[in-house]
C-alpha cells in the first residue's frame, strides 16, 4: 500500500502546488481533488471487474476474476518459467531499441543541421515512416526467418524511422541566437553541433526516447504473436489458444506495468540529468 501511495505522489510531482487564482475557461483542481478523482475512476473500474466476475455475469474464459488472475500469476512465475518469457521480451526490446537509438541520434542530428543530409535522407525516411509495421512483418519473416534477429528487427523498424525524424525536428529548432553566439566565441559550424546542438537538444531527445520506447513495447508484442517460442506476447497467444483468460490478463498487466515503469524511469532520469531546464 505504501508503494502505491509513493507512486501516486511521484506521478503528481510535476504539478505545481497551491495556485490560487482561477482563470476563465479553466477550472483549477486542488491536488487532493485530483487524486480523489483519479482514485475514484480506478476504484470504479476494479469494482466493475469484481462485480462482473464474482457475480457470475460472464464466463471465466471471457474474463477472469482478480483472484484467478493472482493465482495464474503465481502459477506462471513458479511453474512455467514466466520470468524467462519476460526476460526474452525485455532483451528483444532493449536490443532493438538501443540499435535504433544509436543510429537515429547521430543521423537525426545531421539531417536536422545539414541541408545535404536532409536532402538525401529525409524523403526516404519520411516515406518508410508511413509504411505500417504490421505490413512489413511478412517481409521481415521472409528475409530474416522467425528467430531473434527478426523479432529485434521489428522493434527496430517500428522505432528507428519515427525517432530519426523526431530528432531531426528537434535539432532543426535550435534557437539561432545560441548558434550565433557560439560562432562569435570561436566555434565553427561543425563544432557547434557537438558544443551547442547536442547539449541543448539532449533533454528533448531523451524525451523522444521515452515516447518511442513506449511504442517499442507494442512492436515486441506484435513480433511475438507470429512464430515465437518464448516471450510475454507468446505467452498471451498460447493462453488464448487454451482459453486461459487469467494468464492473458497477467500478460497484459505485465506489459502495462513494465511500460509504465520504463516511462517513469525515463521521466525521472530526464529531471535528474538535466537540472538546468525550466521546471
Amino acid at each position: 500500500m505504501g508503494i502505491l501511495h509513493w507512486l501516486q505522489r511521484w506521478l503528481m510531482a510535476p504539478r505545481k502546488a497551491g495556485k490560487e487564482t482561477e482563470s476563465y475557461g479553466r477550472r483549477f483542481l486542488s491536488q487532493s481533488s485530483y487524486l480523489s478523482l483519479g482514485s475514484l475512476s480506478f476504484i470504479i473500474l476494479v469494482s466493475t471487474w469484481c462485480l462482473v466476475t464474482y457475480g457470475g455475469l460472464v464466463q471465466p474464459y471471457f474474463l477472469s476474476s482478480p483472484t484467478q488472475v493472482y493465482e495464474a500469476a503465481h502459477n506462471l512465475l513458479v511453474m512455467q518459467n514466466y520470468a524467462g518469457d519476460i526476460a526474452a521480451s525485455v532483451i528483444r526490446i532493449v536490443v532493438g531499441f538501443l540499435a535504433s537509438a544509436v543510429l537515429a541520434i547521430p543521423l537525426g542530428i545531421l539531417i536536422g543541421r545539414s541541408q545535404i543530409f536532409e536532402a538525401i535522407f529525409a524523403p526516404i525516411t519520411s516515406f518508410v515512416r508511413y509504411l505500417p509495421v504490421p505490413a512489413l512483418l511478412p517481409f521481415c519473416i521472409l528475409w530474416l526467418g522467425i528467430g531473434e534477429v527478426q523479432k529485434i528487427s521489428i522493434v527496430f523498424v517500428g522505432v528507428f524511422f519515427q525517432l530519426v525524424l523526431m530528432i531531426a525536428d528537434i535539432s532543426r529548432n535550435i534557437p539561432p541566437e545560441l548558434l550565433e553566439i557560439a560562432y562569435t566565441l570561436g566555434t565553427t559550424p561543425r563544432m557547434a553541433i557537438i558544443r551547442v546542438v547536442l547539449p541543448y537538444s539532449a533533454p528533448l531527445i531523451f524525451d523522444g526516447l521515452r515516447i518511442t520506447l513506449g511504442w517499442a513495447w507494442g512492436w515486441v508484442m506484435l513480433a511475438e504473436l507470429v512464430g515465437a517460442s518464448q516471450g510475454i506476447g507468446y505467452m498471451i497467444l498460447k493462453s488464448q489458444r487454451y482459453l486461459l483468460n487469467a494468464n492473458m490478463i497477467v500478460g497484459l498487466l505485465t506489459v502495462g506495468l513494465l511500460g509504465l515503469a520504463t516511462d517513469l524511469l525515463f521521466a525521472g532520469l530526464n529531471r535528474a540529468l538535466f537540472r538546468w531546464r525550466q521546471t
Partner: peptide, 13 residues
Amino acid sequence: GYVPQAYSLFPWL
C-alpha cells in the same frame, strides 16, 4: 565580442 539583446546564455551551462 558580441552581446545580443537577451536570452543568449547557454542554458545547460
